[in-house]
């Protein structure tokens, strides 16, 4: 039998994906199916696992003893319970704050060194993004289960909620401006209504994500920073308590969602 090379080449340029598929939710689902098994976040996950297990820093140790909340070295299921209260630091931390904490306490990096490159730029890769991809991927298929047991966890949630509704700045914007009604969009970008449980679940459970428009896995910190920039708010400090509080509110809003990230998005 002759081999027939019926080739369908999917040359996915950024332009194509943006214009043709960002239109509505149904198209996005077709798009997702199209890209099944084609999420480059997988490579980030692999790189992240290597970084997790590689000895580094002045102390020359790996992150394998890092306690993400479920005991030293437990990665599986850690993310669906974050942010959470950590008794060793007596505060609530999100994943990225905790990672930085581990890099400082275990590996001996300074805060500056540990947070030097939170987001990849052309030609300058971030260590944190792959680590986040690796850790979050280890919660795939599990249900979002942030606990609000400790008083500080409750406090973070309440502050996060306040921040969500906080309208201010030159444009009077807040998270609530764009994310409190159904079926709205800015330009062609759909806006999830985060006050609606189903929509909040769907969105939260698919971050971090490999962003085709940027060619990188982007973390929750990155996502929120972009929103805050467009709200005309000041630049948030990386891995700060304010962002953790907002993340806590969003994570709790997504309670029960089956976690499915790192996903692939525009």
């Amino acid at each position: 039998m002759r081999l027939i090379g019926q080739a369908i080449l999917l040359a996915l340029t950024m332009q194509l994906t943006v214009s043709a598929f960002a239109d509505d939710a149904e198209d996005n689902d077709i798009y997702a199916e199209f890209l099944e098994d084609g999420n480059p976040a997988e490579f980030s996950e692999i790189n992240g696992e290597e970084l997790w297990k590689t000895k580094a820093g002045p102390n020359n140790v790996s992150l394998e003893q890092c306690d993400l909340g479920k005991g030293p070295g437990v990665v599986e299921g850690a993310y669906v319970e974050l942010p959470r209260y950590f008794s060793d630091v007596n505060k609530v931390m999100d994943l990225e704050q905790r990672l930085i904490h581990c890099r400082m306490t275990l590996q001996g990096l300074t805060q500056e060194e540990a947070t030097k490159q939170p987001f990849s730029k052309p030609g300058k890769a971030s260590d944190i993004e792959p680590l986040v991809a690796y850790i979050t991927a280890a919660s795939k298929g599990m249900k979002m289960a942030v606990k609000l047991e400790h008083p500080m966890e409750k406090e973070a949630y309440e502050i996060g909620k306040k921040l969500f509704f906080h309208r201010a700045g030159s444009h009077d914007f807040g998270c609530v401006t764009c994310h409190s009604a159904d079926n709205k969009r800015i330009r062609l970008q759909n806006l999830p209504n985060l006050l609606d449980k189903k929509q909040a679940q769907k969105v939260y459970a698919t971050w971090p994500a490999y962003r085709l428009s940027q060619g990188e896995v982007r973390s929750m910190q990155h996502r929120l920073r972009s929103c805050i920039r467009q709200q005309r708010f000041p630049n948030p400090k990386y891995a700060s308590d304010a962002i953790t509080a907002l993340t806590m509110y969003l994570a709790k809003s997504a309670d029960g969602a089956v976690y499915a990230a790192p996903a692939i998005k525009r």
Partner: peptide, 17 residues
Amino acid sequence: MGIAVSKDPFLSFKFKG
């Protein structure tokens, strides 16, 4: 391929035989 193809390219195709 050329520069119009995105970073981390993904290809899918079918063949018989």
